[in-house]
Design a binder for these strands. Structure first.
Length: 865
RNA sequence: GGGCUUGUGGUCUAGUUGGUUAUGACGUCGCCCUUACACGGCGGAGGUCACCGGUUCGAAUCCGGUCAGGCCCA
């Protein structure tokens, strides 16, 4: 044990955290592939390397680290890997911004190099924050999706799913961002309210209302409701499109809302998702009026080359000139936009690669996973149920995993690489064999790349050791921690891919964390100015305080409002605990600890039984991922039980030097040692610092989880009573204007059992305390009744009120000695035991003593003259 | 418009199967610098548990509705 002289007066988190960071070794957190211990593999979310680890990430990682550390102490072989989900548009956009270029200004290779460099730099910055937060990351299992080692696996998974028919290519309408020039999935479309105009114009004699006149060239039909009398005559007709003069059929469809606009709608390829429905259902032709850059095509005639906004204005002007534009109405509209750049999306029909979505298969696997909290499963179910299109996985971008496919220049046949040739960039190298169909050796490499979710949806396969064949050695993982915002993406795609590639669910459990809202209760955003970054908290209060906030902020799974108060409270708890540490060490080093000392004093037994209760509660809470419950119980034990009550009780005994001191020392040591371990998952720096003074040279993080149990019901009951007695006397002193340490005279405690308090009570109260088991010789006067509703309710049901009224009406003598039966609404009814207790006021020989009752314990206080 | 979720003292928050006085933190008021701690201790004030109705002997808790917030989606 270190000398208590070494302990600084104040806990300096900055110094302590930095010191332990330099001492701890990464290897202690490595997953051991040969271990015989039960495995606990975590499918950690790979964050997007923006360079800033935001507070939402911090919360999620706190949760992960709590159970990672807990599981290690419980004897599990834990893998807490760290991945980086590198590919995607944001980095491309950032690179264009920083270098003042567009992706077309440099070669694909050069552009990728710039993206890789920026990403590496950002990863470096984020690693620093992860380390400061003391996350027990397994750096030996770090993965970076942009590195060949990883994206080779992404490509391998592509080939496997292509072979099994999950992946196919097809021309199909897809959501397309014309600014980013790429297809995107539904999961990447966000919606915004905008105001637009509904334009009413004459369409070959019929009034049509449209918000998108620029798509007139892409009109392929007119649709009306089959029951709409106004348009009965149109059935079976062909109509001529104004300005463009091509003929289109009239179709009848129940989905047309007769009340909207004129009740007749033009179907274009494609104005929105509904158009796609109609186009499929009525087998209409395809007219592509908008190209990948968002400009009008050949079929728009003289409008070719205009962007959609210009084209809209031009067509409306032309309509006016021809006098077919009748009127315009304002209309509130929801526009689908690209989630990254907010450009309204177009629906374009393009040759793309798709992954088949089999809802039943995904739902089945989702049901085999334990969801925390449970209701998050519903979100998955809802999303699965309403999937309409397959998942479009091809993107027309650069910084992403290349699609490992070539097309024969001569016959168009597809050529694929062999497993051993992966990873491959088909735009850089040719296939090793000539075309299987025609023997040609000339190929075009696929220029499209994969959706980033194709990378991240195999994170769990990667960490569990997938090599393309069968079930990976450590699959399924034990847990997936993630936010509820990406249930429809990351969780959904991961389940899909795991089922497709292994036939199994990816994890046993999924722990869904809430979002972190700003102090104003709104989602953090730059425009609101309510962003709090982890670094700010780390500098002001340290990692342990931030981690405590993560545990205590809210119940796991619910959204959590950031609150400086909680961080401050966390920091204060550390101060308190630091003082407990100092006190404990000062006491423990005075005389050597006797590990076989007898625990006989009530306070000591009480401390140990309360510790035992706390360990059980904390362990159960951690098993259920209820971090708030767990940490709250630890704090309560340290602060209330140990500091405010136990230490106050035994201080006097500890200052002495006799046999009774030894038991207190042992109890104190046991509790303090356990507290360090209980705190280890939550506040790793702080717990390590405290423990290092108790057991120099050994790390708390290498200790097993507390296994302490102490079975002593009597100690719990009598000890709680003792604490109550002390509290009541303190209150009495307070109420009668005495200082708490003022001498009190003689206090007699009439308790039902003999209590061995080793004089603790007397020293604590500064009074001459006598414990007695005989009955107090007091005159008592009944002043009221306390009813026990949990007895009366079930017994009397509807007569409960009547029963209580009857008891209240009894004479004081009858209340003190209640009759066996009582008349209740004309019926003689038995009086149950424990139905009520009289409230007494005690007198002894006039008014010489004050009397306090605590349960069935009676205290008389005779103040010293 | 739909799904999910929340509404508890000034602020944030706990409350598991309905059961005596509704948890804790911050703030606030009073007393106390007692050899670990004033970043502390002790005590107090402050709540018709959003609103309305129902089930029940009994509802913060269960059911229905209303209002308000949040998240995700159409």
């Amino acid at each position: 044990m270190a000398s208590s002289q070494d302990l600084p007066k104040n806990y300096d988190f900055a110094e302590v955290e930095e010191r332990w960071r330099s001492i701890w070794r990464d290897e202690d957190h490595y997953f051991d592939k040969k271990s015989k211990k039960p495995q606990f593999v975590i499918d950690t979310p790979p964050p997007y390397p923006t360079g800033n680890f935001h507070i939402g990430n911090a919360l999620n990682w706190c949760y992960i680290d709590f159970f990672a550390r807990y599981k290690r102490m419980k004897g599990f072989n834990v893998m807490f890997p760290q991945g980086w989900d590198c590919h995607g548009l944001p980095t491309e956009v950032k690179v264009e911004e920083i270098n003042h270029i567009t992706k077309n200004d440099v070669s694909r290779e050069e552009f990728r190099r710039l993206c890789r460099e920026l990403t590496e730099k950002n990863i470096g910055l984020m690693r620093i924050t992860l380390r400061k937060m003391a996350f027990s990351t397994d750096w030996s299992n770090e993965y970076v999706t942009m590195q060949p080692k990883y994206y080779g696996k992404t490509q391998l998974s592509f080939l496997r799913m292509l072979a099994s028919g999950y992946i196919y290519q097809s021309e199909h309408p897809v959501n397309y961002c014309t600014r980013c020039e790429t297809a995107i999935a539904f999961a990447e479309v966000s919606y915004e309210d905008r105001e637009t105009h509904l334009n009413f114009f004459d369409f070959d004699g019929v009034e049509i209302a449209t918000t998108r006149p620029e798509l007139l060239a892409a009109c392929v039909a007119i649709a009306v409701h089959p029951d709409d009398e106004r348009y009965r005559a149109l059935k079976g007709r062909t109509m001529k499109v104004p300005l463009f003069c091509h003929d289109v059929p009239v179709v009848l469809d129940e989905a047309v809302d007769p009340a909207f606009g004129s009740g007749a709608v033009m179907i274009c390829t494609f104005g929105d998702k509904q158009d796609v429905h109609w186009w499929k259902q009525h087998n209409l032709s395809l007219r592509k009026a908008i190209d990948r850059q968002g400009r009008m095509t050949e079929i728009a005639g003289k409008y070719k080359g205009l962007n959609t906004t210009e084209c809209r204005a031009a067509i409306l002007a032309e309509m006016k000139a021809q006098d077919i534009l009748k009127r315009q109405e304002k209309l509130a509209q929801r526009v689908g936009t690209c989630w990254r750049c907010k450009t309204p999306i177009e629906i374009l029909s393009e040759r793309q690669w798709f992954v088949k979505i089999k809802p039943a298969e995904i739902a089945d696997a989702a049901h085999k996973i334990a969801w925390y909290p449970e209701h998050m499963l519903l979100r998955m179910e809802n999303w699965v149920e309403q999937m309409e299109w397959d998942w479009c996985i091809s993107r027309q971008r650069i910084f992403a995993t290349p699609i490992p496919v070539w097309f024969c220049k001569k016959c168009g046949e597809i050529a694929l690489p062999e497993d051993k040739d992966l990873p491959v960039d088909p735009t850089q190298v040719n296939p090793k064999h000539p075309c299987k169909k025609c023997g040609s050796t000339e190929f075009d490499g696929e220029v499209d790349v994969l959706d980033t979710w194709m990378d991240s949806s195999i994170s769990v396969l990667n960490v569990t050791g997938w090599d393309g064949s069968g079930t990976p050695p450590f699959f399924p993982a034990q847990i997936r921690p993630q936010g509820h915002d990406i249930i429809r993406t990351w969780a959904f795609y991961t389940i899909l891919r795991s089922v497709a590639l292994t036939g199994q669910k990816p994890w046993n459990e999924i722990l869904v964390n809430g979002m972190v809202l700003g102090e104003d209760g709104f989602k953090m955003s730059k425009s609101r100015g309510n962003i709090i970054v982890p670094e700010e908290i780390l500098v002001k209060y340290g990692a342990d305080a931030l981690r405590q906030w993560g545990a205590m902020g809210a119940a796991t799974g619910s959204d959590i409002m950031f609150n400086w108060n909680d961080v401050v409270a966390a920091s204060r708890f550390q101060t308190k605990m630091w003082n407990i540490t100092k006190f404990a060490l000062i006491q423990l080093e005075k005389e050597g600890l006797e590990t076989d000392a007898q625990i006989t004093a009530l306070a000591d037994r009480w401390l140990l039984v309360r510790l035992s209760d706390t360990v059980e509660l904390v362990s159960d809470a951690l098993e259920a991922y209820q971090f708030d419950v767990a940490l709250k119980a630890i704090r309560e034990f340290a602060w209330e039980v140990l500091a405010d009550n136990y230490i106050e009780l035994v201080k006097g005994r500890l200052y002495k030097s006799d046999e009774s001191r030894k038991g207190a020392c042992l109890a104190l040591h046991t509790a303090f040692d356990a507290l360090c371990r209980l705190l280890a998952p939550f506040t790793p720096y702080f717990a390590e610092e405290c423990y290092s003074h108790l057991s120099p040279g050994s790390s708390v993080h290498k200790q097993p989880w507390v296994a302490f149990t102490y079975d002593d019901d009597a100690a719990r009951i009598e000890g709680n009573l003792l604490v109550q007695v002390v509290a009541e006397v303190r209150k009495y002193k307070h109420d009668t204007g005495l200082a708490l340490n003022a001498p009190l005279g003689k206090v007699t405690i009439y308790a039902p059992h003999t209590v061995n308090d080793e004089g603790d009570t007397g020293r604590t109260l500064n009074a001459d305390v006598h414990w007695r088991t005989d009955a107090a010789k007091l005159d008592r006067v009944i002043t009221g009744i306390d009813f026990n509703r949990s007895v009366i309710g079930p017994t009397f049901r509807k007569q409960a009120q009547a029963f209580m009224a009857a008891i209240t009406a009894l004479s004081p003598e009858q209340m003190a000695n209640p009759p066996k039966t009582i008349m209740l609404e004309g019926t003689e009814t038995a009086v149950p035991e424990n139905a009520f207790t009289p409230k007494y006021s005690y007198m002894e020989e006039g008014a010489k003593v004050d009397v306090i009752t605590v349960g069935d314990v009676i205290l008389t206080i005779a103040k010293s003259a």
